[in-house]
Each structure stands twice: as C-alpha cells, then as structure tokens.
Design a binder for these strands. Structure first.
Lengths: 322, 322
DNA sequence: AAAAAATTTGGAAACGATTCCAAAATTGCT
DNA sequence: AGCAATTTTGGAATCGTTTCCAAATTTTTT
C-alpha cells in the first residue's frame, strides 16, 4: 500500500538498517549512501510511519494535559505555555478538559498504561482514591497527589501575608477572606492559613467565607460574604472568577472601591483579557508551565526530580487599593 | 517485558485471536471463554498496547487542532468544545498554537502523512502556498484553503448588516467600520462588504479603518480610527481584542458611550473572561466547534461532506448601544 | 603485506496488536 | 444418526519501524 522503508532500501540499493540510520541521523552511515538514501526517499515521497517507530521504541512523545476547563484565563494561559515548552522538547500535548468528570484522572492513568501518552500534567482538583500512580510519570500544580508526585506551586503563604499587610498599611481595619475551599489537599489552602496568621498577629476579627464552591456559584458566594461581613473595609479574594464577581457585587451594593472597600485578589487579573484593574497577586503562569513540563520530562526519562518547586508571585497594583 | 496478549491467551487457555475479540467486544466469542479471558486479563493486570493496535489498524484516533494562540477567549472556547466533541467520537485532540510560525500548517500536514494524527482542524490565518492537501482530512473555520476543504462559518454578511441597521435605527448618522484585514481569503471579509452595502443603501459616508494588523497593534489602530473619524457616532468593530481596546480608547478620549458613541462588535464579548458589557454579534462557538469536528470525522471516514456550513450568530445587547 | 582494530553494513528478529483462513466445534435439519 | 450449514476458534501472517548481531569493509598498526 504505502511506501515503506523497504521500498526505499531497495531503490537505494542498501539495507533497511541503513535507511533507518539515515532517517534518525546516525553518523555511522557513509556519505555516498546517505545521499542515495535521501534521494530515494524524496523520489518515492517517503514519510516514516510514526506508529511503527513508536511501537518499536515504546515511546509516544505525547503528553496529556488535564485541566478542569480550558476555557478559562488561567488554564488557557497555562495550556499555551505547556504546549510551547513541550514542543521545544519534541513532545505534543493532548488536551483534556476534565469538566465535572471525576474519573478523567483515572482515564489518563489508563492512557499511560496503554502507551497512548508518555506522561501527564494534572491540574485538576478532584479526589483520586486508590489510583495507582506507581511508575506513571505525572506532575501537578499546587498539590502533590501522593506526597511523591512532583509539583509546582507559587509562594501562596508569603504572598498572601504580604498582600494582607499591604492592605492593613493602607488603612484597612476589618479585613476579610473570600475563597473557595479546594476539594483536596492543596497549597491553595496556604492562603487561608496566611490570613489567619495575619489576623492573629494584628489582633483582628476573622471574617471568612471559604467553602467548597461549584462552578457558577460565585455570585451567591460573593453575596453571602457581603451579607455576613458588610462592614468589611478590605477583602482578600482568592481566585479569578470569584474576584471579578465579588467586585461587581460590591459595586452593586454601592460600595465605593477603594474608598470604602479595598480589594486584593490572588490570581485575579489577566490584563490582557479584561479592563478591570484589580490589585492582585499574579501567579507566574508561564514559568509554572515551563517548570512543570521540565519536571515531567525528567520523570519520563526516569531522572530524579524535586518534589516541590516554589515560584514567586508578583504583586501588581490596580485601582482597588488606596 | 510487559504483559501481552499472548500471556493472556496462555493463561486463559485460548488463542490470541480470541483474546483480541474479547478486547474489542466482538460477539462471536462464547460466554465461558469470554469470562476466562477477562479473568486472565484482570489477573495479569493486562492493558492493551494502543500503539500496536494503531499500527495494525492504521488509525491513530488523534486529531490536531491548530489555533493561532489558545490563550484567547475565542480559541480557548473553541478548543474546549472541539475537545468535548472529539471525545464523544473517541478522538483525542492534540493542541498546537501556531503563534507566528507560518510553517506550522505544513508541519501538521506532515504529521498526517506520518500517521501521527488522522486529521486536523485549521483555524490559522496564514498563507499556505504549495501545500498539498490531497488526501489529507482537514477542515477549517471561516475559510476554505483550496476551495475544497470543508469549513464552518457564521453568517458574517447578514449579521453585520443587521447590526448596522440596528445602530442606524438607534440614531447613528455617522457609522464607521473598524477591523483588521485577514491575511487570506476568508469569510471575515464579508463584514466589510456588508458595511459598504449598508453605507451605500443609506447614502452614508464610508469611514473605514481595516488594514492588516499584527497582534499587539490594536491600540494604535484604534487610535488611528479616532483620529481620522473622531466625529463618528457609531462604530462597528470586528474582532475581540480590537473591540475591547477601541472601547477603552474611546473612553480615554472622553466619549460618552453610548450617548455620543455607540459600539457594536462582532465576536467582541466573552462574559466569562471579562466584565465589559459590549453590544455584540456573538458567534455560536460551541456549534461551530461541534460541526467542524463532525465534518472532520466524516472526512476521515472518507464520506462526502458539504464544503460550506453556515451557522447563525446571536445579537446580544450590551451597554454600548442606546 | 599481513594482522588487528575499527567502522559500516545487511537483514533477521522484535515490538504487540489485528485479521484472515482453514480447522474444529456446534447447531439444525431430514 | 448422518450430513449440511453455521458458528467459534487457533494461530500464522501482517502492519512498518528499530535494533542487534555477525559479516563485510575499511583503516590502522606492526
């Protein structure tokens, strides 16, 4: 049917081994034959069949990227850089949006076992009881699955603390914390811990709304915060959607921002995409993506890696603080 | 090394053919043997090697999605639904951001030839001279590459016309058109054509800025429009980034929107990504994604398809029109 | 010039599935 | 029961590479 390495070998008058060596740029082929082979390849319009080579080599050069949903500024940016970095190492990215489907993680593991992909980046926040990650090259963001999986995170604790102190310096007396509790053990929880420590340090009253939140519940969560703590003069909001919605909610309630109410968000702004100028702790998304891919490739190659890699955020002033 | 179909066959006391038939859920296996095989598979923790099956079957069940950049509301949404729909048909999506690299299209074609993917969705806007698409299952959005490639588009012409008429009904006397000219023949050009027809029909003076624009030049383009046509009382803006930037620019020039200046954008709003309430012609991104995948799968299967599929937009009122 | 060492080469075996064909087993029919 | 028709089965051949090994060739050394 299609042109194979054998046809090329025959036309070039060499053995299949030699053709294979030419394809893979091995040096041990004498120039004259190399030329003949290349000519034959061109003449026959030969293209090597990747599936065959992958089967033989037992590597796919594909990795899976599992995100909750790619249609979201943070994950889209992450996906973008993940693809870019993977490409530099010769890997392709298979994109999977887990959506609500908890079993997607398991499915990806399955794909690794089936040799569909060489490894995976997990950015989901679901439960994963009894998944056997043994021998599966997997890396993650913001959390380790089993204390063994390498992951990349940002300096959640310190950045939150600094942000809160900044607000207090700017005159906030009643600072609240609004977030959505991660379903799993994750470094995101460090933000609340930092808040509690600051509250303690400064002798403030804690005002926290931080429950498990479904996608789409932002409005009611934001509203519930305002109902409980309408007298707050500063709020630290964790997360992109939530900070946007909270900002709108506060405005609707006729709060003057930042006069009556200052807002700082964690990862709440992508200036490229909207014209809301929030003061924010910005995650180094690009660097996180690149690091996570480098870790994964090391894992795939069987090399040792650090378990926890912390990257530093950037504090960006917007118009929601004084 | 790893567990193969032979090991399963041996343990179950059957032939490899039978095991294969069990794996692929063929009916012609007697129940007693089916059970034995399944048991053996479980006992050996057997997982079929996808690469082997793909080589033999000569299909990868992978498709490539080529977008200019995934970190963009339109493409991210598209990618999301493309993945979702492909998944329903048992295909995985390999994500490729072409960025500025014009040769990415050629690279994807190459991947099809190498049997890395079964087909591809092209959403790029680059030139592609001399690419041989013969026998390559490819589909696209907003344009046909060679008059033969199936593509999905929205009703650019009619929607633009309707939008402009709406603006005129709402009192606009001086309506302008702001866009970025596509580098290639694309249905996006229908928007300008519609504008010209409306201008003609109502006897207005055309006010157009519609040149080829690099990514990042939005601000200068928007400014140049305002410099030339500062007296416009209505502008139709084509494209996501441009409409946002134009809105900001107009505001900075102290235009009262929509009092002094009404704005309607084509594909200008993604409420999930930002909080700007533009009146907009909204593309049916989800439906476009699903249709494009169905077309592609038909192509892969060798079935006949329509060349041009037109989907209808939705006119969404925001706060930038009276 | 012969022997030893190093390089290059051809081609069989392997990767692990699917598929085809002929043989075996089962079923149906008279 | 005997025969034909049908269903089920085992296993060799196949997909198109890469890799290994021994053989052939070239280069170096003596």
């Amino acid at each position: 049917m299609s042109v194979t390495i054998k046809d090329v070998a025959k036309l070039a008058g060499v053995g299949v081994g030699t053709v294979s060596r030419v394809i893979n740029d091995e040096k041990s082929v004498i120039e004259s034959k190399r030329i003949k082979v290349k000519q034959a390849m061109k003449q026959l319009k030969y293209t090597p069949n990747r599936m065959a080579s992958r089967l033989r080599r037992n590597e796919t050069r594909n990795i899976a990227l599992l995100v909750p949903i790619v249609d979201h500024p943070f994950f889209a940016k992450l996906a973008y850089y993940v693809e870019d970095e993977a490409d530099r190492f010769g890997y392709s990215v298979i994109l999977v949006s887990s959506q609500q489907r908890v079993d997607k993680e398991r499915e990806i593991i399955e794909r690794i076992h089936r040799r569909e992909v060489d490894g995976a980046v997990f950015v989901t926040h679901y439960e994963h009881e009894g998944i056997d990650l043994e021998g599966c090259p997997i890396v993650s963001i913001d959390r380790s699955f089993d204390g063994n999986t390498p992951y990349v995170t940002s300096n959640n604790y310190d950045a939150t603390k600094d942000a809160l102190k900044y607000m207090i310096e700017r005159g906030c007396k009643k600072v609240g914390f609004l977030g959505s509790k991660p379903l799993v053990k994750s470094e995101v929880s460090e933000r609340e811990r930092a808040y509690l420590d600051v509250v303690n340090e400064y002798g403030l009253t804690p005002m926290i709304v931080n429950e498990v939140m479904e996608h789409g519940e932002e409005k009611s969560v934001a509203t519930s915060f305002m109902e409980k703590f309408g007298d707050a003069d500063g709020v630290f909001v964790s997360g992109y959607s939530l900070s946007q919605v909270f900002y709108e909610t506060a405005q609707e309630m006729n709060k003057k921002i930042p006069k009556d109410l200052q807002i700082v968000s964690y990862d709440g702004v992508f200036r490229q995409w909207h014209n809301l100028s929030l003061t924010t702790v910005e995650q180094p998304v690009e660097e996180m993506a690149r690091q996570v891919i480098r870790l994964l490739i090391k894992k795939i190659r069987g090399e040792e890696t650090a378990t926890r890699t912390v990257l530093t955020t950037r504090f960006v002033l917007g118009k929601t603080t004084k």
